[in-house]
């Protein structure tokens, strides 16, 4: 977690906005917000080059202001007021401030802190609906890109052990730990990592990420599956299917089943 530098240029014309964004992009700025007569540009503090930034508008009317932004939970407002999610009568996901859910087989409490996986997104919904159709009893599970830890927690409630949950994001690692404690799970280990280089194999791999990361890791996913292992993957748009299927086939995986919800897709694959 790092500080960001926010630089605001004002006033600037539309053409100046466009040119400044192109130049700031070359200086490593990550993102921009455009307003009526200003632009705001953002860069991690460690990459900030003050002289090069100020030089861009030297001799123009644009005033430049600088602000340091400390890391914080920007998603807090939504997280304070979201609705529980119920997936069939199989699984319900609620926050600690909601009343307990009735008539669901598995209730999960998630207090998200800028981490993905509350059940609201179609891909989490699809992953959970796919998990419903598999036996997890005593199966070893890897949750690749665990986010809030929701899928790892459900895997434990379904009888899996041991479970390894990995993510490359520090917010997610901390949040998954909190949610695992909230749900009294004892078979989940969390690791900060963005590649699969552990020495163990898993009976079930869960991977709700995106096409790019899944394709980059397809071979590693196959390498980490037991002989009869299966992988459930999502974070995929329906249009991603040809690329994913080709990558899976090239790595020695084949598609067993698929589900869709809106524009999104979930695939079940085996060796």
């Amino acid at each position: 977690m790092q500080n960001y530098i926010h630089i605001k240029f004002q006033p600037v014309t539309r053409e100046q906005q466009e040119i400044l964004i192109a130049q700031l992009n070359e200086l490593g700025y990550e993102g921009f917000e455009e307003g009526f007569n200003y632009i705001s540009a953002y860069i991690p503090e460690g990459q900030f080059n003050e002289a090069a930034t100020y030089e861009l508008t030297a001799g123009t009317d644009a005033a430049v202001s600088k602000e340091v932004i400390a890391p914080r939970n920007w998603n807090e407002e939504w997280e304070q007021n979201f609705h529980p999610v119920i997936i069939d009568d199989f699984c319900g996901i609620r926050a600690h401030f909601h009343a307990p859910l009735q008539q669901v087989q598995h209730e999960i409490i998630i207090t998200p802190k800028m981490s993905f996986g509350t059940g609201h997104h179609a891909t989490t919904h699809l992953m959970i609906a796919s998990m419903q159709q598999l036996s997890f009893t005593d199966k070893t599970v890897l949750d690749f890109g665990t986010g809030t830890g929701v899928l790892a927690i459900l895997a434990e409630k379904l009888g899996a052990k041991p479970i390894l949950a990995i993510d490359n994001d520090e917010w997610s690692i901390n949040n998954a730990e909190e949610n695992i404690a909230l749900n009294h799970c004892s078979n989940i280990t969390i690791q900060q990592a963005d590649t699969l280089d552990m020495s163990t194999e898993f009976d079930i791999i869960l991977a709700n990420i995106n096409k790019h990361v899944l394709i980059a890791n397809m071979h590693a996913i196959k390498q980490h599956l037991t002989l009869d292992g299966v992988v459930i993957m999502s974070g995929l748009l329906i249009g991603d299917r040809p690329d994913i299927e080709k990558s899976a086939k090239d790595s020695g995986l084949s598609v067993l089943a698929s589900k869709t919800r809106g524009d999104w897709m979930c695939l079940l694959l085996k060796k």
Binding site: G31, W74, S115
Partner: peptide, 20 residues
């Protein structure tokens, strides 16, 4: 992180869903 976080978070949007 900024700009997505501050720009959308303050409006009560679920930032994680936007990013996905």
């Amino acid at each position: 992180a900024p700009p997505v976080g501050p720009a959308l978070g303050s409006k009560g949007i679920n930032i994680m869903e936007f990013c996905k």
